[in-house]
Amino acid sequence: MEDDNNVKELLIPEHCFQKDNIKRRRFRRVRSAPLIEHTPGEVNGSDAVSSRSESLFRNLNLHPSFIQIASYLCIYLSVGVLGFYLVRNHIYGQKTNVIVDALYLCIVTMTTVGYGDLVPLNVAGKILACALVFLGMALVGLVLSKGADYLVEKQEGLLVRALHMRQKLGPSDIMKEIETNKATYKFVLASVILLVLFITGIIFLRFVEKLDIVDAFYCVCCTITTLGYGDRSFSTEGGRIFAIVWILTSTICLAQFFLYLTEMHADKRQKHLVQSVLSRHMTNLDLEAADLDDDGNVDAAEFVVYKLKEMGKITQEDINLVMEEFEELDVDQSGTISACDLALAQTSQ
């Protein structure tokens, strides 16, 4: 026991044990939480490789998400093309170039368009198609969650500048405008991109696939919604080369369009809720509910927590979890966390 006490005295400053030196403070403005930094000795091999990779991506102006998605897509298409190439003699339909048809069939399967213009007939081809459709849906979900959203966000600055051409907005003004109306700008961008893809598909089907304007419009609608009746599709080699890129981008863009539409609606509801909470007058019941420590007064921290709960930003469970960690770190039970508390908490672990 004496040895343990001697060790604590060496590790912990003497004033940490003096209760008179502890001062209570009701509220203090907090800085942003600092990023976790590693000392050179703490960086292991995987961290070093990760940091070098991220540095390489920054130098190439590539986002790590794109590297991951591109890798998965290349593997998926390579396996799919090889598989459909091996069973090419057991695929029914109007064929053009063997490699183009295999790649085209991969994209049609991945996006669940399923025209039916190329259909596997043997057991191996059917099993391959079943595997590729599930893996393809998972890959599309990955693209939606990482790649497509990042691309739209990168273009938000250009959209804000275009909408405010007559106003001289600095970088800080642009960032503030984006954060204020983020969901709206994402929806507008997705709408513009979808419209461009829609018109491009109609023009291509009209002049390359030689469909009339109604059938071209009909085929575009069946494709981007993944309805895929199959009575109209891409039948030429050039058309299928175009479709390989166009089908993937248009179907993903339509999914993003509806996702951003839902997000914009939810964002408007959240803003309306925040406005109603901030405009509502405080009552005695509100005062009692906001008084977390039951001392009859509500300080700034308690007021902020109460308002955030009303806005739906945090829940009581979130508060309880944070308070549990606070109580563990507040070793001397003074109601505040100091450097002494942290030193005592570390030695007790």
Rank of each mutant, 00 (worst) to 15 (best):
M165K: 12
D291M: 04
G83A: 13
A300P: 05
K23V: 09
I69T: 13
G41W: 10
Y150I: 15
L82G: 10
I224A: 03
G201K: 01
T336P: 01
P120S: 00
D330T: 09
E37Y: 04
R29C: 03
I75F: 10
G116W: 12
A216F: 06
S71I: 11
L35N: 05
K182C: 14
E177C: 09
N59D: 04
F258E: 00
K23D: 02
A162P: 02
V81P: 00
K23I: 05
V152W: 05
P64E: 01
C16R: 01
H265L: 12
R25S: 11
V274T: 13
C219E: 07
L144F: 01
G228C: 05
G239I: 01
F204G: 03
I174F: 02
K309G: 15
H63E: 09
L278E: 10
E179L: 11
D318G: 08
S53Q: 07
P13F: 08
G296P: 07
F84D: 03
T249H: 09
Q275G: 11
S51H: 04
F204C: 04
L10S: 07
P120G: 02
H63W: 05
K309W: 05
L10C: 07
V160I: 14
E2P: 08
L205H: 09
H15F: 13
V208R: 06
L254R: 08
E328L: 13
V304R: 03
D173Q: 04
E153I: 04
L60C: 04
D20N: 13
H272W: 04
L342F: 09
M1R: 03
E179W: 06
T283Y: 05
D295V: 12
V192T: 10
N181L: 08
L142S: 08
N6V: 15
H281K: 14
M175I: 14
I127R: 14
D267W: 13
L86V: 15
L342C: 11
E302R: 06
G238K: 11
L151R: 02
L211Q: 13
V160W: 01
T251I: 12
V188H: 00
D47F: 09
L169E: 03
I337H: 01
D293M: 05
A102I: 13
T236M: 00
A266G: 06
I127G: 08
F187M: 12
Q155I: 12
R206Y: 12
L151C: 05
L254I: 14
D3E: 12
C221Y: 14
L135T: 09
G147P: 13
L11P: 04
L118G: 02
E288A: 10
D231W: 01
D231Q: 07
L139C: 10
D101H: 00
D4K: 10
S71K: 07
L62Y: 03
G296F: 10
A289K: 15
V133C: 06
S233E: 00
T39F: 06
L77S: 07
L132N: 06
K210P: 03
L342T: 14
V43S: 08
G147N: 06
V277C: 02
I241D: 01
P34R: 10
L121W: 04
C74R: 03
S51M: 10
T347G: 00
Q18M: 08
Q18D: 15
L73Y: 11
N5L: 06
L321Q: 13
